[in-house]
Design a protein around this nucleic acid. Structure first.
Lengths: 344, 344
DNA sequence: TTTAGCACTGGGCTGGACCGAGTGCTAATG
DNA sequence: CATTAGCACTCGGTCCAGCCCAGTGCTAAA
């Protein structure tokens, strides 16, 4: 635990560095942040803080910058959450007010909002389709020999595919087929559909073998694509405005990392368990491209269960009080809104 | 029209510059590209070419680089199309072979492929949903008071929304409702559904007023979202590897431009009319962020009509013969594949 | 314990020297 | 007359020395 003065100095350095992106010197701390002690005293304290691992020095004759550990301490023990302004809260709510009910679209809007508001990159991953709970299956005849296979899950998950019908299928056949599978599978997660009592189903639907093959094929194909969850990723260019990205090589590593959708999805999904806002800073991130960045995430959910994550990805010196409040509020709003849109 | 030797020199400069990203001097041209004339002669020719507007000189004592006009001339009059290698063609076909039939997913895969193969950024926009031809509408009862509204169009366009049913709706009601609207609207483009004989429909479906309101509301909401077509955009980091993006300011402008989905969609849609491969170079692009870039696009289609575009966005000095062949082949494959997957 | 004072450090900026690739021009050549 | 060799010139890039200065650590005084 840091004593009060050390704490104040650490905080002063974090705030100043957030604002300027320049190493902070003892003079600046003692002058701007009204501690009532001289720069020499501050220097001594700063030396202590460095030894404790909370600060680092880019080179001998430079000021100090907060280390990962410094930020960690700040977040865990000192940060006061800021409140979002009325205007900002309204803007967030407005995004959802248009009663759009397409979940990927909502996530995209959410990501845009976050990126804008935090002046950083932001990401959002949606409900894991394979985890959705199956509600209903239907095969709808279209003109020609075609039909539309529709599977409905909870949380607004709907999947479809166009099938070519075997000859001689009547509307009644399709009804029977749909009703049987709906009944058989209801309540199961999608990931288990293709492997649940397949033999039995084949026996009972032996007349519709070809169509059943198509359905199972579709489920398998979905499965294959699974890794490729759509991550909504917005605002990379904001992060590039930060002076820490003046080096083009860093830019490239960072962007390459962002483009790895699988990585990003993984990154967010790791946080699935935790509640509230999670922050990882610099080296705490597993991926080298994200060193130098901090990631602030929160889960949103439906019916009490977590269904996805939203997050902000920015430089380590981001304004945590604001960003944390923002991410929290957005996740909360999104949860509410999903509840309203898809209440099952 | 350039005489033969000028043409050869222009080509040599374009090729060399593509490979090195450095201004090309007269010596290099006369030595590496076997013209059988001395560097002094080449210098004279280069001075002519500059005066004609085909070359530029970054500064007095540097070599020459091709101007936009130079590239334009090269593309229009000189370029030999290269052929794709067997392996490359196979790789492209393989992407579609998994018989995936979700169009956005296919486009995303296509974009990835292009980005990879051309070492540049790539984009793909899909069928304009509002232009799709309506085929069928159904309201499927789910458990609770909910139902799934499904609209099917051509080209694999399927749209859906979860509705809350008014109390007392029977399955038969839903069938009547669905059948009437399907019949009434069949063959119309989506964009006109919400405004076609609304009064008459209201009269005929007066019993289902609330549900009809929901459907029209959905159509309007779709309409509102229209500008936000999903552009699949991949491989921005490749472009950043190019030495012309060593300057971080340029990177930012470029990325900001890429993030403007609306811009990108517009960019591609402008090309809707033209057949074959279209190339725009540097200043030919309307958007300042894309100066310094070239965009190679081609349309893909279904049933003979264009339905979307794919393209590669890279530095002006990209290897046009390869990229043009690539984009052409990919668009062609995609057209074929869509025809197979969604033949209506 | 705090503070004033001071020598020291090391990065960033500036300006000059130098290098070399490449040019344009001129005069010689076939 | 087109081509070429030769040459003076240009200009960006790199290297280096010198200076500046923010900021440090240490010491001694308050």
């Amino acid at each position: 635990m840091l004593d009060e003065r050390k704490g104040k100095i650490l905080e002063a350095i974090i705030l100043d560095y957030a604002a300027t992106a320049e190493p902070v010197g003892s003079r600046a701390v003692s002058r701007k942040y009204g501690l009532g002690v001289s720069s020499a005293t501050v220097r001594n304290e700063m030396a202590d803080l460095e030894e404790l691992g909370f600060l680092e020095q880019p080179h001998t004759s430079a000021g100090r910058i907060p280390s990962d550990q410094g930020y960690r301490y700040y977040l865990d023990h000192m940060m006061r959450r800021s409140r979002l302004g009325q205007a900002e809260m309204r803007r967030i709510c407005d995004v959802y007010s248009r009663k759009a009910r397409e979940i990927q679209w909502m996530l995209r809007q959410t990501a845009k909002l976050l990126a804008e508001s935090a002046h950083a990159a932001s990401l959002a991953v949606g409900p894991h389709r394979e985890d959705a709970i199956f509600r209903s299956l239907r095969v709808l005849p279209l003109e020609g020999e075609q039909a539309l296979l529709v599977l409905v899950g909870d949380a607004g998950v709907v999947e479809h595919r166009i099938l070519n019908l075997p000859p001689g299928m009547t509307v009644a056949d399709l009804e029977v087929f749909s009703a049987y599978l709906t009944d058989r599978w209801r309540g199961l997660p999608f990931r288990r559909l293709a492997s649940t009592s397949v033999r039995e189903i084949y026996d009972n639907l032996s007349r519709y073998r070809r169509m059943l093959d198509d359905v199972l094929d579709f489920l398998r194909e979905r499965r294959e694509r699974e890794g490729l969850e759509t991550v909504q990723l917005v605002g990379a260019s904001h992060v590039l405005e930060q002076p820490e990205f003046r080096d083009p090589a860093k830019v490239r590593v960072f962007l390459e990392c962002l483009e790895r959708e699988d990585l990003m999805a993984e990154l967010l999904e790791q946080r699935e368990g935790s509640t509230g806002v999670t922050v990882t800073i610099g080296e705490e991130n597993a991926y080298p491209g994200l060193r130098g960045c901090a990631l602030v995430t929160a889960s949103f959910g439906m019916g009490g269960r977590p269904k996805g994550q939203v997050g902000v990805l920015g430089p380590k010196r981001m304004e945590y009080p604001h960003v944390v409040a923002l991410v929290e509020f957005v996740a909360h709003s999104l949860t509410q809104e999903l509840g309203r849109a898809f209440r099952d």
